[in-house]
Computed example of a mutant assay.
Amino acid sequence: MGITRTDWSEHYSQGRGFRRPGDGEKRLIVEHAPAPEGGRALDVGCGTGEMSAYLVSLGYEVDAVDAVDAALVRARTDHPDTAVRWLRLDIERDDPAPLDDTLYDLVVFRLSVAFVHDRTRVLHALGRRLREGGTVLIITPLAANTSTEKRRIALDEEEITALTCGWSSVQRFAAGDLAALVLRGPCAGTVATERSVPATGYAVAGALTVVTDAQGRVLLGWSKRGMWEIPGGKIEGAESLDGAGARELAEETGLITTGAGVVAILTDAAQGVPRVTAVVRTAGVTGTLVTAEPEKFTRWEWHDLHGLGRLGPVFTPSAQALNWVWPGVIPGLPPVNAYPVAAELAPVPGEPVEAVRRRHAMTDAVIAGGWTSSTAVQEAMRTVPRHAFAPETDLKTA
C-alpha cells in the first residue's frame, strides 16, 4: 500500500518535513524558468512551503497546494509574511475548482511526483494550464541513488521515460543527487505505433479490453516496448473473445471484470501479417490495480478521455479500439476495417467531479440568460454528460 493522508498528517504534525531546496535547484529555476512580469507559479505538493517562498522571492505570484492540512498549517506558520495562496488540494483526486481557471508560467513538483500514481494524466492536465511558453519543472530523487526501503520516494529510468512521454520539449539536468526535468508544451500529439509481429503465414488474433474507473477514466499501461497499451493479448486456443479479454486483464493488472462483452471486431495488417482484434468493453471491475507482469509493463495509469489525443506513442490496435468506443478521441489513425457487434452491456457509470461542476455552471448561465424556460430541457442539461460526446476536447470547452 502507498502512503496515506493520515501518514502524511503524522509526518508533518511531528515536525518532520523534507530537505530544503539546494543551490543547484535554485539555479535551475533562475536559468530555465525565470519569472516573467506578472508571472504565476503553482507549487504542487508544497509541504512546508520552502519552494513556494523561494518562488515568491523570484517575483512569482504563487499558488501552493498540498493534500494535507498539517502541511499547510506548518507552511503558514513558517512563512507568515510570504504572499502565497495556500490551498488544500489533492492534485490527483480532487476537483481542481480551487485553482479556478488560472493559467501558470511555471508548475513545480519538488520531491512529490513519485507519490502520484496517475502521473501522466496529472501532468498533462496541468500542462493544459500553462501559458504559452510555460514550464513544468519536476525535481525528484532517482531510484539508483535511493535505498531499497525508500524506493517509493524515487523514480527509475523507465518511470522517467513514461513520465516525460508526450511532451514537445524535454530537458534533463542534475541537481546534486536529484534529477530535474524541464517539460514544455503543449503536449505532443498521439502517434499510433507498432510492435514486433511474429513471422507467420497466418493471421494474428487478439482481444483488447477497454476499462473505465468510477470517474470515467480509461486504463492504459506503459509497456516495456515504449508505448501506451490497453490490457489485452493473443487469444489462446478456442477460448471466447470476451473470455480472452477478461483473462488478459486479470493477468496484466490484477483486476477482475464483473461483466464484459465484445463491441467490435477490427481487422488490419501489421508488417504484412493479417490482424484481427476483438474490442471488449467491461461493465465494471473489482480488485486492486497492480503491475502484475512487470516484465511487460512498467506501470498502469487511469487517463482522462480528453487527454488521449496527446499521450505520445500508443499501440495502434489500442488506439483504434479506444477510437471505436469514443469516436474522434484519437485523430489521424491508420485505416482499419470495423465490424460492430451488438453487446448487451449495462451503461458504464462514472464521470469526473469537475465535469459535474462545469455542467451545472453552464446550465445556471443558460437559465440566468433566459435562453431556456423548459424544466425538462434544464434537467437534461444538468444530467447529460456533454463531455462524453466530445471526448476530443477538454472539459471546459465541452
Rank of each mutant, 00 (worst) to 15 (best):
G189W: 02
N145D: 13
R247K: 05
R299S: 10
E31G: 05
E229A: 09
W167N: 00
I139F: 11
A388V: 12
A41H: 06
E37T: 14
L266H: 04
Q378T: 15
R119P: 01
R299A: 09
E351C: 06
I139L: 15
L305H: 01
A270Q: 14
S373R: 14
R382D: 07
S52I: 01
F115D: 07
V211I: 13
E159F: 10
V353Y: 08
P331N: 09
R131Q: 13
T193H: 06
L249Y: 03
W222H: 04
I367D: 10
V263L: 11
V191H: 12
V182N: 02
L241I: 03
E301L: 04
A180F: 11
L220A: 11
G221S: 05
T193N: 04
T253L: 00
E37R: 14
S13E: 14
G233A: 08
T164S: 13
T135D: 03
P349T: 08
A199W: 11
V204R: 14
G261K: 00
G216T: 06
T102K: 12
S196W: 13
P385A: 03
E251C: 10
G127V: 04
M362E: 09
V30R: 15
W371L: 15
A319V: 07
T375I: 12
E92Q: 08
D118Y: 06
I3N: 09
A321C: 15
T146V: 04
V122T: 13
A35N: 07
G134C: 00
E248C: 12
T267K: 05
L208F: 02
T277G: 03
V113L: 08
L87Y: 11
V348F: 01
R172S: 15
K224P: 06
R19S: 12
A361S: 13
L220K: 06
A343I: 08
D118M: 07
A343D: 06
F173M: 12
E61N: 10
L183A: 00
F18E: 07
Q14T: 13
K150L: 14
D43R: 00
I3G: 05
E301A: 08
L181R: 02
V62F: 02
G2I: 09
Y60W: 04
D23L: 14
